[in-house]
Nucleic acid binder design. Structure first.
Length: 333
DNA sequence: GGCCCTCTTTAGGGCCTT
């Protein structure tokens, strides 16, 4: 199977060409070897993911390659909450051979426990900003056509971006500029193929024994439920140690804050409020991720929010969202 | 569709995501 995968940097210039197999993928494998009992790279068991075979079953071969059309970028250094974004990095064209990857076991530590044990919990939390583009607003009838992630701790391969073939006509290219032609190109992965890679990528960014915090704008009502639907559609589940934060909540607080002139909670309004220049096309996943990463940095500064704060006060899990959706569906019958 | 706010909870409207 061959799929197109984009790994992008926050900004040009493009200064390095890596192969994923030589960089990120090697890192994934090294991680699994180094932390066998802690954070061994894992795609969760076959029973959950509907794979054939037992835990010892290896993944079948997959090739993932970037293409420039997909604007797949891979960033080297970006930013960290509490630190200024100081650098930009390179672009990657890669061939990724995911064969012979062991499905291991991952031991995670409960976040609340970790916070109480370690005040500097932010050091063991991976903060990833993400965004999706879709064919519309309906989780049932529409599909994801682009996804982008940026690990705010920076470093090699800190961003992940790809178009997704939705197997349907893209009816809203005027919104994001993504056409049916673009997503139907040879090599653009379907969601079913992308999910294991996506999970593995996030896992590769996770610190040993740490947790993952995935941040998006309006994620509670759009991005996360959409992801849940896509995962469930192919009998996958979002890993239970993925914690989500919706930046709409702190944005509401910012609107109410004394002296704030923020008039709307939209990402565009937040970008304008903080005078963040738009790099790339609005409503392309990575462009919006870049904006949100900067908004998050400035908003957490203004509201004096720390990463543990975000976790304690704003985070939610996919299962909480799923349970809410099930309850509401049941009540509406 | 779902969250939040308010002129509220026995509800309705605005906003946000593509």
């Amino acid at each position: 199977m061959r799929a197109t995968m984009c790994f992008s940097h926050f900004q040009l210039p493009r200064c390095q060409i890596h192969t994923l197999y030589g960089s990120w993928w090697k890192k994934v494998n090294n991680l699994s070897k180094t932390h066998e009992n802690i954070s061994k790279v894992r795609l969760i068991g076959p029973s959950i993911y509907g794979l054939q075979g037992g835990h010892s079953r290896r993944w079948t071969q997959k090739f993932v390659s970037t293409n420039t059309e997909g604007k797949n970028v891979l960033s080297g250094k970006t930013t960290n909450i509490g630190h200024q974004i100081t650098d930009v990095s390179s672009m990657t064209h890669s061939n990724l051979d995911t064969s012979r990857i062991e499905i291991g076991e991952c031991k995670s530590v409960h976040i609340e426990q970790k916070i109480s044990e370690n005040k500097d919990v932010s050091k063991c939390i991976t903060v990833i900003v993400f965004d999706i583009e879709t064919t519309g607003f309906s989780r049932e009838n529409d599909r994801i056509i682009e996804i982008a992630l940026q690990d705010l701790s920076g470093g090699e391969n800190s961003t992940f971006q790809t178009l997704v073939n939705p197997d349907m006509i893209v009816t809203n290219p005027q919104i994001h500029g993504i056409s049916t032609y673009m997503v139907r190109k040879i090599g653009v992965p379907r969601m079913k193929e992308l999910i294991p890679i996506l999970v593995q990528y996030v896992r590769s960014r996770q610190k040993p024994g740490g947790q993952t915090l995935l941040i998006s704008h309006n994620g509670k009502t759009f991005d996360v439920p959409f992801l849940i639907s896509e995962f469930n559609r192919y009998s996958y589940e979002i890993p239970s140690d993925w914690y989500f934060v919706d930046t709409m909540s702190p944005a509401r607080e910012l609107m109410k804050a004394e002296g704030s002139t923020l008039s709307s909670k939209s990402l565009q309004a937040l970008r304008e409020y903080y005078e963040i220049p738009l790099i790339g096309q609005a409503h392309r996943a990575m462009a919006d991720v870049n904006v949100l990463a900067l908004v998050l940095q400035k908003m957490t500064r203004d509201l004096k929010l720390t990463v543990p704060c975000l976790l304690e006060s704003y985070s939610f899990t996919a299962s909480e969202i799923s349970n809410n959706l099930k309850k509401k569906k049941k009540n509406s019958r």
